[in-house]
Amino acid sequence: MRLPLIDEHRSDAGCGSGGCGCAGTSGAQPVASRPGMTRRSFLRTTAGATGGLAALAASLSPLRELTGDGFSMQQFLQKHYKEMTESDMNKALDRIRAQVEQRYELRPEIRDIKPLDGVEFVYALNLSRCIGCRKCVHACVAENNQSRDPEMQYIRVIEMPRGTTDIEQGDHHYDRPTVPDESHYYMPVQCHQCANPPCVKVCPVEATWQEADGIVVVDYDWCIGCRYCEAACPYWARRFNFTTPSIPRDKLNLNMSYLSNRPRPKGVMEKCHFCLHRTRQGRMPACLEVCPTGSRKFGNVLDPDSEVREVLRTKRVFVLKEDVGTLPRFFYYFDERDPLRNISVEGAGS
């Protein structure tokens, strides 16, 4: 392998060599110019340039395997989500539909579902009831078309020893024949849809933002994959597609939406979006529906009669890492009704 090391034999600039195309500038040369290029140096120059180009081509050869996954000219020119008109969005949806059809030979139902007026979603999770069965984890993967190989999960269930709320002491990879274990309690963590989301703040291109109903979404067609949001999240709620996600054809969920569970390309971020393609249409998130113990409560906190509102009012509620100031919309609580509510003690004044 030769590289383009052109030995000019101390020849002057303006040699007219084929390899470098300098003929046009020789006019500016002084009269004391060298004699023209010798045959030998011409051969050397050519061989050097050819060898160099060959080496360059060889080093780029892995690009031949490029499949064009996640890349199309139309998508390249696509505008930011918030700047798209209705017809822009329809075109984008058509493109995604065609891509899914081409890849899976299945026709998806894909829409862009907007937030509802007067709705702010809130999640509440009952730590007294959760048994750590991880059914929510897998229902989420199935619902949201996450990559199966490697498997990506939005929900992480941590097995916590009783007597502490310090998650450093939890076990992420507990593997028991039966759950729950008597000496532990279980704490599922997913995106907290913070009202003050650090991930949104740090994104350099506004590829992630908070919607009117409080859900923090990602535009998979806008994300540049810098992973700054992943570093910023205190709840480890964000996931990156280190390679092209792979989903078996029979596992694909065909009920899709633009900002939630449509298939993602490699190199972009994704995260829990409270199943917005379901919840914005009056259904419950997949993780809630599958929960065998009823530990999960979800609803509109602006609705005074909602179940989540009742939980926030009557249970002992806390949020994870309150000190980082993210104002999560995901609450944990313990089941006991306030045992002190019917007791009153005199002398409570200071």
Binding site: F71, F76, K79, H80, C203, P204, V205, E206, A207, W222, C223, I224, G225, C226, R227, F240, N241, P265, K266, G267, V268, M269
Partner: peptide, 17 residues
């Protein structure tokens, strides 16, 4: 080289946070 989508670097020009 650290970017997941270097092909979208121009998004910095279009929507600069």
């Amino acid at each position: 080289v650290d970017m997941g989508r270097p092909d979208r670097a121009h998004h910095l020009l279009l929507r600069f946070n």
